[in-house]
């Protein structure tokens, strides 16, 4: 498949970089002329995925977070966010609304629910001890 555009970034999983990741993805999708609502959906989903890498993937250590994003000719944005952290043992359980393993940090357990609700497709793959990869996809309709 031909892509209209693509980009790759990596940054240390420090929580200050959650805002950085949102800014980068906003700038990247701008060429598709998304509505404010579409942009907010994408930023929120990316924020959830990056926060998951930082809070769950790496826990107390700081590892690298990778984002690979593409824009297709039919105006879809595909964003892959991955870490090389601890991985997820039971993906189905992790994706259940309100399930969290970081209750003491007041995590609501809604990260995946938000991603699924705000994006068209969410794909998660994970290997324990190797890391987790989340692929988010959304068609930019930009109808105002």
């Amino acid at each position: 498949m031909n892509y209209l555009n693509e980009m790759h970034i990596k940054f240390p999983g420090k929580s200050v970089n959650e805002a950085f990741a949102r800014s980068v993805i906003s700038a990247f999708v701008l060429e598709l002329d998304p509505t404010i609502a579409e942009l907010a959906d994408i930023k929120t989903a990316v924020s959830e995925a990056v926060t998951n890498c930082i809070v769950h993937g790496y826990r107390r250590e700081i590892g690298m977070v990778y984002i690979d994003a593409k824009i297709t000719e039919d105006k879809r944005v595909i964003i892959k966010i991955r870490d090389k952290g601890i991985g997820i043992e039971d993906i189905k359980k992790a994706m259940q609304p309100l399930f969290t393993t970081a209750e003491e940090e007041e995590r609501a357990g809604l990260g995946f629910a938000v991603m699924q609700s705000f994006m068209d497709k969410v794909k998660v793959s994970s290997t324990v001890g190797k890391g987790t990869s989340v692929t988010l996809e959304k068609l930019i309709v930009s109808v105002r």
Partner: peptide, 12 residues
């Protein structure tokens, strides 16, 4: 802007 961290904040 607010993500689910804000929901955790509200519930807390």
């Amino acid at each position: 802007f607010m993500d689910s961290s804000g929901i955790g904040l509200i519930m807390g």
